[in-house]
Design a protein around this nucleic acid. Structure first.
Lengths: 285, 285
DNA sequence: CGAAGTAAAAATGTCGATATTTTTGTTGAC
DNA sequence: GTCAACAAAAATATCGACATTTTTACTTCG
């Protein structure tokens, strides 16, 4: 075998050779950013993941313009690197690119979320059907393990700490992923994944406004038990209800607040600028 | 209003200032390429469209590696420009990108096509349902017009000329697009569109091997009439059958020939290289 | 003869500078 | 005051050079 692959990015372990706005950017970024950077194979992947996270969290406001120069500086990468990361995000339907007009965060609206939920119910049940049909012992073990890790979190304290909410989101994602892990249809998986990421934006908003549903774990448990019992119809019905609940929850908020992202939260840096911008740009559509 | 926008690319109307491998590339490319270049707003868009066309036509073999340097030279653009175009194609599920391993054309297989058809039937009928429900007089007119243009082609001579096949593909696309033009669900439209483009690759292969189905126009006519009569169920059933027929047709060919793209056709330039490469690379998965 | 290691070659990824286009701001005519 | 034309500023798109990694070819050792 080859020797362990050296880290791709000189910035993390070795002193940089060329221009070094990176230092400042790294200093300003938090621990998660640094870790993302270490884990990424390429700078493009790093920028891609960081952008994706920030869009899902609403730190980059829906509908706002993604200015290359600003982000490039903040992330400490070259413009073409950032550009490619943004192009990759188009595949996730989180960003749009229009020639000579740059990139934009895909807007949010309750109608959009309604459609996402509708299609998500189709894709999620398709994937679940196939997964339950194909799932072997390893699949079962994976589901149980993911549920257990999710269940370990202290749901009573959940809304008090941002780190806990992050952990919840991560493990929630892992659990739902484990459920459909045995689905082999690549197209179903792809569409499901895109829809899931997009739904995350709305869920994040919903959690920020109203917290996590108190008895969400009982829903998860019911889905898991139905899946393990190979009760396809029940598992699918429960999954659909699970999705519908997030929709109904969000539908209670005023439409304007949904389109705006996180108006109540404090903003810093690019997010603040994006917010200011959004106000102006809302008019132009 | 502003004065008519000057062409973006100096290469087409004005002498270029910087490095000019473009001249050679343009000279080598055919008329369609030059036109694509004129119509494109940016060079990225030009490269994107040209790559997309070549992938759908199978000139860039399924599963083959997309070498930046080679394509960059052939298309006469910078590496980052080509790179971004490729990244954009990931959104269409025609190209995959894996860190530090470059880009690849998405492979083809009969199982893949089966799945595409299965999902396509869902998306197509969803879109058709909504389109028929919302469609106004303009929509009807658009459908009739698109059908008429498709019908103008001489179907008996169709398989004799490549230009005619191109025209058929274009108008066929336009017709199906017109049918669902009144569907407002953006997600359904997006998924439908991605699936359609992917199905085109297989259809192109099918046509190259066996020609166009003789009585395809009667299928189109039946779908149109059902749609105009607002007979949702009939229109959807006919659409599904329409899709199934292309699947059954392709399923007759040996699986290896599908994965290989166009083994019988003569290749030139990059396509030939890609073909040679593919043979070697097939082993590695 | 095969495996392991190493040097050369090719390809990918990264960068900042520059050209081009869009947007913004200002002035002047009607 | 509204509109148009124009100049200045900001942002996007494009480029080719360079660094890094992967792949290939070759050599050496068991």
């Amino acid at each position: 075998m080859r020797p362990a692959r050296a880290r791709s990015m000189s910035g993390s372990t070795l002193p940089r050779e060329r221009g070094t706005p990176v230092i400042k950017a790294v200093a300003a970024s938090d621990e998660r950013d640094r870790q993302q950077r270490r884990n990424a194979k390429t700078l493009i992947e790093y920028a891609y993941k960081r952008l994706k996270t920030n869009i899902i969290r609403g730190h980059l406001a829906p509908g706002s313009k993604l200015r290359i120069e600003r982000l490039r500086t903040e992330y400490g990468v070259a413009s073409s690197t950032l550009r490619e990361a943004l192009s990759l995000l188009v595949a996730d339907s989180l960003v749009t690119a229009e020639g000579q007009q740059g990139f934009r965060v895909v807007p949010m609206s309750i109608e959009d979320f309604r459609e996402i939920c509708s299609l998500r119910k189709m894709m999620e049940t398709l994937a679940l059907r196939e997964s339950i049909a194909n799932g072997d012992e390893d699949w079962e073990a994976g589901v149980v393990a993911a549920f257990h890790k999710l269940n370990l979190l202290d749901f009573r304290r959940l809304n008090s700490s941002e780190a806990l909410v992050d952990a919840y989101n991560e493990r929630n994602h892992a659990f739902h992923e484990a459920l459909v892990a045995a689905c082999r249809s690549s197209w179903v998986r792809r569409f499901r994944s895109v829809l899931y990421d997009n739904a995350r934006r709305y869920r994040h908003l919903s959690v920020a406004k109203g917290g996590i549903r108190p008895n969400i774990q009982s829903e998860h448990r019911a889905i898991m038990e139905a899946a393990l019992a190979r009760d396809v119809e029940l598992a699918c019905r429960l999954s659909e209800e699970h999705i519908d609940l997030t929709l109904h929850r969000l539908a209670q908020f005023p439409a304007a607040e949904i389109a705006a992202g996180f108006p109540g939260l404090p903003r810093r840096g690019a997010a603040a600028a994006a917010a200011r911008l959004r106000a102006r740009e809302a008019v132009r559509s």
